[in-house]
């Protein structure tokens, strides 16, 4: 494989990833434009860590994550993944973006996914045991009786009992369904799990249970998480590092403590200040954001955030700021990242 990742501690490295969806019109479905859902983003996920990916709806975080694991074909860019399937050590590095689909299949064993909606992500016609077993079947690893034990083990790992095996998804509560989805994700013993808003649809008291479960499983199965969410406090709780997206671009990446207390991008600052705080005596000082999120098929020139940014200057209207490293492990895509005094959370 020509691809390589320099840092042996990195599991997945995304380089200049783009995903454009064509807009088609007319009888012959001619392409009249593109929605730039993911527009040139780069990030890396280190082995054993949790990278939180936050942003508002439509910012492309889900598309970015799904393209990164080749559920969607990328328009451009590279996704380097370190596979440990054959032996130990540093493993082999593959470029998921360039791999023929046929050769993707063995790698799918190492990357799993958990979805937001615990109802839609489980086939209502299949029993729990069939659902958890399916990944094993697809990879020809269903060995009958032995697999029954395997499935039971997975269910007990996520806190479900073996009596639940022959039941159907509709017989479970939201939290339990999410556990079934997690058990399915674990079935092939992946190294990387993409968690796409895994707790957003759950009740407050069930969120805590599920977050704890995810942390326990990460430790037990040596997992790396890409955690996509819009809830800043949930992301802060579970992540090691946090990446912020806005209209298909990465605006800031930093270790969570650093990002929350010392944001270096005005959008991050506004996002943090908008996040409601369950602390009536110390409300956050809100930074008002004017206007709407731009249309990703027709974004403004320069920095996409400039029409809503209170620090915007002329250069912001014309030049696109690149994501540059500004401190230890801290990157921001703002022309004034070094000079602005931004308000974080205490």
């Amino acid at each position: 494989m020509p691809a390589s990742i320099e840092d042996p501690g990195v599991l997945l490295e995304v380089r200049n990833l783009k995903k454009y969806f064509p807009i088609r019109k007319g009888l012959l479905r001619k392409v009249v434009g593109h929605i730039k859902a993911v527009d040139d983003i780069s990030f890396e996920i280190r082995k054993g860590e949790t990278l939180g990916l936050v942003g508002e709806s439509g910012c492309g975080k889900t598309t970015a994550a799904r393209t990164a694991i080749r559920l969607y074909d990328p328009t451009d860019g590279a996704v380097l993944f370190r596979s440990h399937a054959n032996g130990s050590g540093e493993g082999e590095v593959y470029d998921l973006a360039a791999l023929p689909l046929r050769e993707m299949k063995p790698l799918r064993r190492e990357i799993a996914m958990v979805f937001q909606d615990p109802i839609n992500s489980l086939n209502p016609r299949m029993s729990v045991s069939d659902i958890v077993r399916e990944p094993l079947q697809v990879h020809g690893m269903d060995l009958g009786r032995e697999t029954d034990d395997e499935v039971q083990g997975l269910l007990s790992a996520v806190g479900l009992r073996s009596e639940h095996m022959e039941r159907y998804p509709h017989e479970f509560s939201g939290g339990q369904r999410q556990r079934i989805g997690i058990a399915r994700a674990l079935a092939l013993r992946p190294s990387l799990i993409l968690l796409d808003e895994p707790v957003s649809a759950l009740d407050v008291s069930i969120q805590a249970q599920t977050l704890n479960l995810l942390q326990d499983l990460q430790e037990e199965f040596d997992l790396t998480y890409l955690f996509v969410a819009h809830d800043l406090s949930v992301v802060e709780h579970i992540s090691d590092r946090v990446a912020v997206m806005y209209v298909g671009r990465m605006v800031e990446v930093a270790p969570k403590r650093e990002l929350y207390t010392n944001p270096r991008h005005p959008y991050t600052e506004a996002l943090l200040s908008a996040s409601p705080k369950p602390d009536p005596r110390n409300p956050t000082v809100r930074i008002p954001l004017v206007g709407q999120v731009p249309d990703p098929s027709n974004p403004p020139p320069g920095c996409y955030f400039h029409p809503r940014c209170r620090y915007a200057e002329d250069v912001c209207r014309t030049e696109t700021p690149p994501l540059v490293t500004i401190g230890e492990d801290h990157a921001s895509a703002c022309h004034f990242a070094d000079t602005l005094e931004l308000q974080g959370m205490q």
Binding site: R66, I69, F115, P135, R184
Partner: peptide, 17 residues
């Protein structure tokens, strides 16, 4: 568009399956 179809694709199911 159901996520269980996407889920099946995510662990490598073929179109046929």
């Amino acid at each position: 568009e159901r996520e269980y179809v996407l889920a099946a694709q995510s662990f490598g199911s073929s179109d046929w399956r």
